[in-house]
Design a protein around this nucleic acid. Sequence first.
DNA 1: GCCAACGTTGGC
DNA 2: GCCAACGTTGGC
Length: 155
Amino acid sequence: MAYWLFKSEPDVFSFDDLMKAKNRTTFWEGVRNYQARNFLRDQIKKSDGVLYYHSNAEPKAIIGTAKVVREGYPDPTQFDPKSDYYDEDAKRDEPRWYGVDIQADRAFKQVVTLEEIKQTGALAGMMLVKKGARLSVQPVTPEQWRHILSMGGLK
DNA sequence: GCCAACGTTGGC
DNA sequence: GCCAACGTTGGC
């Protein structure tokens, strides 16, 4: 059981959108970064916990949690010429990009903002607050997970 | 809207 | 294999 933080721009797909999705579940599509791809393909396992972070938003914050309900499989949008995520170099017998299915779990009672995270010494190690850490899928330690959930009003 | 930081591409 | 140029991310 491991923990992760997924970034999403709420204008594109918000936590609320996930809550409203069928079975509160969606395929996490469109990741086009190799390091993030490796996590999605190789390391993220069913029932792992996900912190759902809104980037490019006001407030920039972790909004709630989700859990992984299906492990990595090829992202179909890489093969779809109509998709924004189309990758003409991806081959069906050798997919380049992967995603997982996540299901919304719990909305925080109060959101945990980037500002608050920066001010919390115990969270200084989070990749999110490291300079230049743009990775949209990042690992979170169990200690960080517990701390964030507590700040969000969940035990 | 700006721009720093980072990742990728491609010429050499 | 180096690295300049370019594109993207995402906070501000």
